[in-house]
Simulated assay, not measured.
Amino acid sequence: MASTLTSPRPDVDTSAAPPQLVIDQVHRSFPNPEGGTVDALVDANLSVRPGEFISLIGPSGCGKSTLFNLIAGLDAPSSGRIVIDGVDRAGQQGLVGYMLQKDLLLPWRTVVENVVLGLEISGVRKKAAQAIARPLLTTYGLAGFENRYPHQLSGGMKQRVALLRTILFNRDIILLDEPFGALDAQTREQMQEWLLDLWDDFHKTVLFVTHDIDEAIYLSDRVFVMSARPGRIIAEFEVPLSRPRKPSVVTSPEFVALKADARELLNGAHTTHTTHTTSSLSSQEGTVA
Rank of each mutant, 00 (worst) to 15 (best):
F237Q: 06
I233A: 01
E146W: 11
A228E: 13
A162W: 11
M226H: 05
Q152G: 08
A162S: 12
S242Q: 15
D184T: 00
K158R: 15
R243D: 05
R229D: 05
S220L: 07
R160H: 04
E189W: 10
I173V: 15
K246T: 15
Q186M: 15
L198A: 12
P253K: 05
D214L: 03
V206R: 01
A257M: 12
D214P: 10
E238H: 13
L198V: 15
F208C: 04
M226N: 03
A228T: 01
S242Y: 04
I233D: 06
L176R: 00
D221W: 08
T251D: 15
F202T: 10
E193S: 15
R160D: 02
Q192G: 13
D197Y: 00
S220P: 12
G181K: 09
R243L: 10
S220Q: 04
F224M: 07
P179D: 01
G231H: 07
A162K: 11
M157E: 15
D214H: 10
L195C: 06
V256Q: 14
A228L: 03
V239S: 00
F224T: 00
N170P: 01
T210D: 09
D201L: 06
K259W: 09
P240G: 07
L198K: 01
A228F: 03
R165P: 06
G231C: 08
S220F: 08
I213T: 14
R245N: 05
G156A: 07
L207M: 13
L207G: 06
Q190P: 01
V225H: 09
P179Y: 02
D200Q: 13
S252Q: 05
S154K: 07
F169P: 00
R165K: 02
W199S: 04
A216K: 03
D212L: 11
L198Y: 01
H203Y: 02
N170Q: 15
Q152R: 09
M191W: 07
H151S: 12
V206G: 02
E236I: 03
R245Y: 08
A260Q: 10
R171S: 10
V239M: 05
D221G: 02
S227V: 01
R188W: 11
F145N: 05
D221Y: 04
G155N: 10
F255M: 09
E238G: 15
V225A: 09
S220W: 07
Q190L: 14
P253W: 05
V209P: 05
Q190D: 10
F145L: 15
F208V: 11
K204F: 11
N170V: 02
V250R: 15
E254T: 13
T187H: 02
F145R: 12
Q152H: 12
R188S: 08
F224V: 00
V223T: 09
A185N: 09
L176N: 04
K246V: 15
T210L: 11
R243A: 07
A260K: 11
G181A: 08
A228I: 00
L163Q: 03
E146P: 12
F169Q: 05
Q192H: 13
A228Q: 13
Q152C: 06
F237I: 01
I167H: 00
A185S: 13
F145I: 12
L175T: 01
S227R: 08
V225I: 14
F145K: 11
P150C: 10
